[in-house]
Structures are given as C-alpha cells and as structure tokens.
Design a protein around this nucleic acid. Structure first.
Lengths: 218, 218
DNA sequence: AAGATATTTGACCAAACGGTAAAAATGATA
DNA sequence: TATCATTTTTACCGTTTGGTCAAATATCTT
C-alpha cells in the first residue's frame, strides 16, 4: 500500500529528519516569517506563505499540521534570540559598559532581525496569546535577576534612583521601535524604503539619552 | 415606493445628520475601536463589531460602506489626537518644562487612550497602508518644525548635542510602549489585567531618563 | 392619520480560506 | 532494478467572511 506517513512535527522518536525535510521546513519558516511579520497572523494566508516558499499549500501542510503550528514554531524559535542580549548583562561590570553594550546589542538585533521583531510586536499587541506563559515565567524571572543587578548599582550610587525594570522597558521600546515602526521613522525622516541609515543616528541618540546627560542643568 | 436612500458617509450636502445617525455612528466606531485595537484589521470581523455595537451586520453596513471605511474613519479621527501633544511644544519655553510636559502628555495619552494607541501601532506595523501620506506630509512637517525648536536649544547649549528627531522617536516609543505592550509590562511586573498602577512608576522613570542624569559620572 | 423618509432585519451569495483525501511522483535502499 | 517510504500534486470540502437585496418596520413631517 502506498504509505502516507506524515512527519508532522515529532514523528521519528530519534528526531531523525530527512534532508528534504530540513530544507523544506526552513524554507517554510522563512517564508512564513516574511508573511506573518508583514501581515500579522490573521492577515497572513497559507496560500501566500506557500507561494512565498515556492510550494503548494497541501505540501506545506505536510510539514506543519496547521497555520498556528507554523506561527508557534516561529515564536518559540524567537524567544531565545529575544532574551540573548539581556542575558549578557554582567553584575561585575560597570553601568556605562553594561547598559551601553546592552543597548547596542538590542539595536543591532533590531537592525538584523526586523522581521522577528515585528512578529514579536504583533504577538504582544494581540495580547500575547501564545507566549503569555513565557512572559510570566522565563522573561519575568530574567528581568527580576537583571533588575537586581541594576538595583545594586543604584544602591552603590553609580546610577540614579529609578525602577530598573522600567529602565529595561525603556531600552526595549526605544530599540525595537526602529524595527517595528520603521515605516514611520522612514517617512518622517524622508528616507527611501530599505534605507537603514537612521540606525547610526539612533545609536548616537540612545547613547546620549541613556549614558550621558540629555538636558543641561542651568 | 419604499425608499432605500442610504446615507453612506457623505450624503446630505449640508452634512445634516439625523439623531439616530449620529448615535449609531458613534456606537459603531466605539465598538470597532474595541475590536480593531484588540485583533487588528484582519483579525476583526464585521460580525463581532456589529455584535459589540448591539446591531445587525446589514444595519452596520447601512452606515459604513465596508469594513475598511470604518477602519479609515477611526484612523483619521485618531491623527489629531496623536498630534495634539506634540503641537503644544513652545519655542519660548525651556527644555525641562517643554520636554517634561510633552512626555507627561504623551504618557497620559497612553493611559487614557490605549485602544487608540494600539490601533495606531497596528497600522504602522502593517506598513501604514492608510496613513502613509499623513506620515510623509503632516507628521513630517510638524516634526521638522518642532525639531527646529529643540535644535535651537541645542545650539544655545541648553541640551546635549543629539538628533532632535530621534529624541522625539525615543519619547514616542517609551510612552506608547505602556499602551501597546501593556500585556508584556503587566506580565513582567506580575500585575493583574486592568491594573494600571505601573503608569506612575513609568512617569518617574521617564522623568529621570529624559530630564535627569541616569548614569553617574565617576 | 397619511404619506414620505429613514432605519432595521432576515435571507442570501460569492469569494476566500483553512484544511483533507488519495493518487501520482520522487527518492532512498537493498 | 525492484521495493518501500517519502514527498508532491490534483481535486475537493466545509466554514467563515465581507457584502447585497428586498422587504419590513420605525420615525418624522404635515
């Protein structure tokens, strides 16, 4: 009989994947990232994703059970990338170096992975239906840990008194803004689509804002 | 004959609207703001909007030609609200007062109009298909105007050297973050849904960040 | 109250969409 | 090359969704 053994995520106990399987799954995920990040979950259609992946829709559904499974696969794959810059903050460093390099890492992340950033933004805007648990557990714990480091610097008088968690929010929002709201940034600055020159100006701005003194006392 | 004269946006030259017309249009727009802001354009359905407005779908379409017209009506009605805080920045003020009160106005706007903020965020994330022209003309011009004021303060040595347009971006992103990413903020802080207590902490943070010196020189 | 107009509703439709079934084609392997 | 499992395609299905139509009802005006 002509077998129809679909792989469907976890199929082989030993996780053995065919060459074709690996190739196609990455093709699909890449295409889905394009479509989801520019149209959101509901705005994206399986037909467009399949088309972007140069693949028929049923073929696509041979590798992923349904639309949501592709979306979840992208999101979960994203979380480690999202956390990576934050994890690197070290307690034994000094505020300027640690915060400065954290901001540079986050901004670089926006520049290099704008699709991922927009996917994440879409998910949060929609109420985080898929990663709510991640936010409440992993992210919250990591924030608590890193906020304690910042609080230590505050207690040592090396930083102004402020809620360190909100400082992290400020860093997230300012850096991710350049990926998520790039259309607005480009329109306001009068830049062409695809022109990412504003990232250097952004780096200067954020350094002045977070590491220097913006407003002169007088 | 039973007349079927639909109003459909601009119908009476003198813009005369019935009491029922005005009531229902605001009911529809309110319901649509709920649905669009929490599900995005494609995630929202006319049935849900109609249901939220306690109205049948055909009745809803008696007042608005189609789904997009409701969306556009909301967006265009939004733009003045969005611009209002920025317009108030005065050249004859001082940096601390002007920027400080601008931040407070924007933050207050996020607290009071989170649905509007999310609607706007969704539109930008989707590539600003409906308000691209607004961004390139009205917003850009206003930013240019206000950036000139900030540049004046920089030239007078009352502010650090930085690109004033990117300073505005930073204010937009940090303040709007609390509306657009409220789910993330609440999950990370361990707050209940609907708890907006974090806005006061945010105000302190942003004041320290933008008006004070965050990192001590040592 | 009558007549005209404005509003509301129920029934319906075509297209788009997520997803399925089974056969056909391809690739791996002995 | 024969065999079997994997991959791809064709044809299709049920549901959802944006939107229409004509009839019914309510409202307003005189």
């Amino acid at each position: 009989m002509t077998g129809n053994a679909k792989p469907r995520a976890v199929e082989k106990p030993a996780g053995g994947k065919t060459r074709i399987q690996m190739e196609n799954e990455t093709r699909i995920l890449g295409a889905a990232l394009d479509i989801f990040s520019e149209s959101g979950f509901h705005g994206a259609t399986l037909d467009r994703i399949a088309s972007q992946a140069s693949m028929s829709k049923p073929n696509l559904l041979y590798y992923f059970r349904n639309k949501e499974e592709i979306h979840v696969a992208l999101l979960t794959g994203l979380l480690d990338v999202w956390l990576a810059p934050l994890r690197e903050i070290r307690p034994d460093g000094n505020p300027v170096d640690e915060i400065g390099s954290y901001i540079r890492r986050k901004l670089e992340s926006s520049r290099s992975f704008p699709r991922e950033s927009r996917l994440f933004a879409n998910e949060i805007l929609a109420g985080a239906p898929h990663i709510g648990d991640f936010l409440q557990t992993e992210l919250r714990q990591l924030v608590e840990e890193k906020a304690a480091i910042l609080q230590g610097w505050i207690d040592d008088g090396r930083m102004a008194t402020c809620d360190p968690r909100h400082l992290l929010f400020a860093i997230w929002s300012t850096t991710q803004h350049y990926a998520d709201f790039s259309v607005q940034v480009r329109h306001v600055l009068g830049l062409d689509p695809g022109d990412k020159s504003y990232y250097d100006e952004a780096a200067n701005m954020l350094e002045t804002l977070f590491l220097g003194q913006l407003i002169s006392v007088n």
